[in-house]
Design a protein around this nucleic acid. Structure first.
Length: 222
DNA sequence: ACCCAGGTGGCCC
DNA sequence: GGGCCACATGGG
């Protein structure tokens, strides 16, 4: 007798019980979150941490300081996080743009959510996931972040093929759960935690916490 | 010696 | 709209 497909809230509850409250990027400044969101693009967080440590040591972990820094210095700091030439140039440009147009990151992040999103997306180096990460974790506005893990996990749980359209999957999830910044924050963190441990491209299915509530007749593909 | 990681932008059809 | 490709380091 196959189990019913769980809803997103059921999934959240199971993950929450398994991993505990994660509350991402606690104690970090918006500047650090903005910079980290770009550094972590297609890069493991381990490598990003090294880059952040280097930036901190050079006092470059702030929008104003980074906007003034030489690109070559930024490159040297962030080399461990990969794509370092591209990211250094884009980071600097983004910081310059914010200061020139808003005077401070706080002012920029204070914009209305949809406008902020459009404006972030217009900046080179900020795509859909990075924009939403910044809005959720730095500006603390309720936007659900979709990443490769989210696509993969949703596809596997519901036995669908992965949803390619970012905004489609985002709307689907947002329409299924309460609109709450804290929930969006922790839920995305839980998904990444699950993904890192159990839902890589190479499936690691054993002990996946979702086996309790999901009918993995798809077990073999998971 | 591979494959992969909390993507993005550019170019092609 | 979809399919490739470059971008780059560090870990398994």
């Amino acid at each position: 007798m196959p189990k019913e497909h769980p809803g997103f809230i059921d999934i959240y509850k199971v993950l929450r019980r398994r991993f505990g409250f994660l509350d991402w990027w606690p104690g970090n400044t918006p500047d650090e979150i903005l910079i980290g969101a770009i550094l972590t693009q297609n890069t493991s967080w381990k490598n990003v941490e090294k880059a952040i440590t280097n930036l901190k040591r050079s006092h470059l972990l702030s929008v104003p300081n980074m906007s003034r820094a030489r690109t070559s210095i930024i490159e040297r700091c962030i080399r461990p996080s990969g794509y370092y030439r591209q990211k250094a140039q884009r980071l600097k440009k983004v910081c310059e743009y914010i200061l020139e147009n808003y005077g401070s990151l706080g002012k920029f992040l204070g914009k209305e959510s949809a406008e902020l999103r459009e404006e972030l997306l217009s900046l080179k180096g900020i795509g859909l996931e990075t924009a939403d990460s910044i809005i959720l974790y730095a500006a603390e506005k309720p936007v659900f972040v979709i990443d490769a893990y989210t696509r993969r996990i949703v596809g596997r749980i519901y036995g669908e093929k992965e949803e390619k359209e970012y905004n489609v999957l985002q709307q689907r999830i947002q329409n299924s759960i309460p609109k709450d910044t804290g929930l969006y924050n922790d839920f995305h963190a839980q998904i990444v935690e699950l993904g890192k441990n159990y839902c890589r491209k190479k499936p690691l299915c054993r002990d996946c916490p979702l086996l309790r509530i999901c009918d993995f007749s798809l077990k073999n593909q998971y």
